[in-house]
Design a protein around this nucleic acid. Structure first.
Lengths: 333, 333
DNA sequence: CTGTTAGCGCATTCAG
DNA sequence: CTGAATGCGCTAACAG
């Protein structure tokens, strides 16, 4: 760390020229003599000079950093989304600052504040399950643009990118009904999430369309913890008429539920089957994977959100918040 | 974004006081009158004033950002490590900037440069598999401290945190030999990784200790792609005396290899078994998981590396590079 | 208790 | 073609 504070000033003094000449020479300014430019650049390289980017960021009032707030880094869906975000932004010279909300309102709010404090140029956010209060978004928007992805906030002031989950749920249900299933349960998420309501709508729409009576015993809201999943799957299995198929909020729910089924000596995909949202890549290694799953293209979700944010950051005058809806795809195994 | 460039200057003018008074009042400086402080703080809140952190970072020559470079965000091991890093640094007021090398030297080198350019205060790095040239580290070190984790560079100038893989491999082998296995193959990583050599050492040491002849046909170096895994497992299975157990570089290798075995009608954990490094959480959902696995505590690895980096950044004068070795744990299923 | 001043490193406008 | 001067927003030493 010997040259940690080597500045243009020193190079200028060394060479007996002015700082502005150094500055210009370093950026190949046309009005600087070829000789001078050459001389400056050589010394700069020799000394391993690197411009102080904090100064440049400060001067330009840009940091080329983008903040990403998401529930859990370790959830495959989000790590893939983050990967898509990182790729897209890196290509445009931005870096990505990540923070996890762990589905907690306080952490999410703190993360947004912290990102602002750290001087990001914009924020990509997928809402925490327990976010009830939205004021931290409104405050943040005073400083930098925010784009939501996947777990979005429907509000005219914000762009958002998400999957048409209602359609996805409907498609999945239609597929199941087409295969002759009628005892279909829904292991849904917490009510605070938009995604939960949409799964519910698709589920109900399909049942209605095919005149299958809705059994409220078949509809469960989970809080996305393993314990709760175990509780709820047991409730379903203990029903006098247990379901034959379960539409699960995502693969992790299905996997935990499957373990309970196996422990109760039920044959997966025979006594009971699962259909999931999220297409966890790991499932292809299972001997009895969910019979169908909904691919939500997390990488595309992330990169499209990043595109919107880039526009908001780079062309704020012409930018208008908008929504991008990504079509899900039902994958039948 | 209405107040994007509200500065202390405006507050000062509004209140008819000087900028420094505003500055001091905002940080509750004791030498400012209670009345003035109150007045300033109220207006600041009213106007949603937030200090421009780019200016503060510039002034302090700190950004409170730490860069993390790792091979793949989507690999569970790294996403857990990142999560540990993020937790540790967040608690100390730092944010985390992530970049993926995708195991590519060029990308890794570019990532390091980019992080420096973006003004991070330090870097945590897990080396790309194909990193042959180390000069980007040396250059970076002129600017900010680097701490390696997991895939480390052994060099006196750098701190590193890693798992004692030789011991892990030895322990796993000893366990297998104790269970009566002698036909044990090693599906190892690429030679460029230290981790590969260590697995090899542990493997050989154990065979030697128990006088089991080394069969070089049983030792394969993989490049960590699925195609190569398929190729190499087939080579092993085609041997006149195929192995009964395979020690796999990590779970993803074992999983892909298992698929090949199944396609060849071999019973997992009967005709052939697997032992893996990395304890992928997902494996608990498999009907026939690897019979043993080595837990490498990625979260601890990450947070310990973060601790070292914090020391390097905050107490550079007393800081000396050093190594932390984390004990692996053999998990027998 | 408060104001004035200087300066962080760089880009840029204005003068030559 | 080059140099001097200015300012980005904020902090802090210095001076009242």
């Amino acid at each position: 760390m010997n040259n940690a504070n080597l500045t243009m000033k020193k190079i200028a003094k060394e060479l007996g020229v002015s700082i502005s000449t150094v500055s210009r020479a370093l950026q190949n300014h046309p009005r600087i003599g070829a000789l001078t430019t050459e001389k400056v650049q050589r010394l700069a390289k020799e000394l391993h000079f690197q411009p102080n980017n904090r100064a440049i960021n400060f001067k330009n009032n840009r940091s080329f950093n983008v903040g990403v707030v998401l529930p859990h880094l370790t959830e495959e869906f989000f790590s893939i989304a983050l990967s898509g975000i990182e790729e897209t932004l890196m290509a445009r010279g931005y870096s990505v600052v990540v923070m996890q909300s762990k589905n907690d309102y306080g952490r999410e709010s703190a993360a947004v504040d912290s990102l602002i404090k750290h001087g990001v140029d914009g924020i990509l956010l997928s809402m925490a399950a327990q976010t009830y209060n939205k004021s931290h978004f409104y405050n943040a928007t005073h400083k930098v643009p925010i784009v939501f992805f996947d777990r979005v906030l429907k509000h005219l002031d914000y762009s958002s990118v998400y999957v048409d989950i209602t359609k996805a749920a409907f498609d999945a249900m239609e597929h199941l009904i087409g295969k002759g299933f009628t005892r279909i349960a829904l292991m849904n998420g917490p009510n605070s999430l938009q995604a939960t309501n949409e799964r519910f709508s698709g589920y109900i729409n399909a049942l209605n369309k095919y005149n299958i009576p809705v059994n409220i015993e078949y509809i469960k809201n989970l809080n996305l913890t393993e314990e709760d999943t175990i509780l709820k799957i047991n409730e379903l299995l203990n029903l006098p008429q247990p379901p034959k198929v379960i539409l699960a909020f995502h693969d992790y729910i299905a996997l935990d539920a499957m373990q309970v089924c196996k422990a109760r000596n039920l044959q997966i995909n025979q006594d009971i089957s699962f259909v999931t949202f999220s297409n966890l890549s790991f499932c292809r290694y299972l001997d009895n994977p969910p019979i169908a799953t909904i691919e939500q293209f997390p990488s595309e979700l992330g990169s499209k959100a990043a595109d919107l944010l880039l526009e908001a950051m780079e062309a704020p005058d012409t930018y208008h918040p908008r929504e991008i809806v990504v079509e899900p795809k039902l994958i039948i195994r």
